[in-house]
Design a protein around this nucleic acid. Structure first.
Lengths: 192, 192
DNA sequence: CGTGTAGTGTAGCACTCGCTTCATGGAAGG
DNA sequence: CCTTCCATGAAGCGAGTGCTACACTACACG
């Protein structure tokens, strides 16, 4: 019950498992989320995963929520600067997406959204929150433009599209990212 | 025993099944590609699908190839005009993607690419060809720009991203598409 | 007629999936 | 010591998957 023994009670053990699963998913992707395989990699059993999480769906949503928290901590560092134009933002985010620390998060989120697009539960629910969080964050990072307000979903679409294509056909988007960022920056400078 | 004849009953029946399956997938998505469910909707049995196609993978690739042929016929009509700028092209394609006839194709291809991104066979192989075909077609539709050649994958990324986000969170991209097209068109007009 | 052969229905195999049931070990508490 | 209850392993359930073995019909050909 004391803080140093927080890992000995049930909630603590569940937390440890969720954390380990989150690290595993970031490392190896969502394809590892079968109960038996996941349990084996975590050094436990499917029986115990159900025991601690109740169902696979709550396990998945819990692990993804934890991954979301990790990412939001990471993004704090990038939210410190001043708001920027859509083109500059896209350039920053595409650069950020190639950071080896951030890349696993992009891949997991894109995978979540892809599964949601296929109608797979519980990813469809998670995806709604992920998209909402991303658009909110993007909104705070953009210079407000009363003439042509940039919908955050526009930039999110580009990031998701580039990430998806890169996952499906590695190397196919090496030129696409920089060109898009530069094109939007050209558009930034073009006044109505 | 002359089944090497071009119009053998067996090849014909397989063709009929592939065509019906293609129509079904366009109508209801790739989620309907389980052998038993697919067979039931086609008025036959899983036993017969394996009999005519040999395996599910060849069935899937055959059906997707047929869908690709259908789309390329559709796109012929849009390949008649002169090449355009990236912004104009994006505007046209995003409009095209809302055409009720073309939309099912976009959804299927995006689903294929999403499954490929997850490493699912045989979609990973199909996706490579789909991406190659799309980039080739986009390449023929763009005005060559010696200064800033637009990588076709850039426009494909946007189209895939918008489609994916729209499938996962319907309505989330209603403003994104037009804004992106207009931004790229602004960039088109910006020289140097 | 008999013999083959192409098409098809029925049942089933071997596997994976999420999840449950049962039994046990072992520590906490009286 | 005995009881009680939490954590865990072993096995299994029911439904799903792609795919196969077998039997049967209908037709072709000698």
């Amino acid at each position: 019950m004391s803080d140093d023994s927080a890992t000995s009670d049930r909630a603590g053990r569940r937390d440890v498992l969720a954390e380990a699963a989150a690290e595993l998913v970031l490392r190896e992707g969502l394809g590892t989320m079968g109960l038996r395989g996941l349990a084996r990699r975590l050094g436990t059993s499917d029986r115990m995963l159900i025991y601690y999480f109740g169902s696979k769906d709550t396990l998945v949503t819990g692990v993804l929520a934890r991954i979301g928290e990790k990412l939001s901590v990471l993004l704090q560092a990038y939210s410190a600067g001043p708001p920027v134009s859509p083109g500059a933002f896209l350039s920053q985010v595409l650069m950020l997406g190639r950071d080896p620390v951030v890349m696993p998060f992009m891949r997991v989120w894109t995978d979540v959204i892809a599964r949601a697009a296929a109608g797979e539960a519980p990813y469809d629910m998670v995806a709604k929150k992920v998209v909402a969080d991303w658009t909110a964050w993007i909104g705070t990072r953009l210079i407000p433009d009363p003439d042509r307000p940039c919908p955050p979903a526009a930039l999110l679409s580009i990031v998701e599209g580039v990430t998806l294509l890169e996952m499906a056909c590695p190397g196919s988007t090496t030129e696409a990212g920089p060109w898009l960022a530069e094109a939007l920056m050209r558009a930034d400078g073009r006044v109505g």
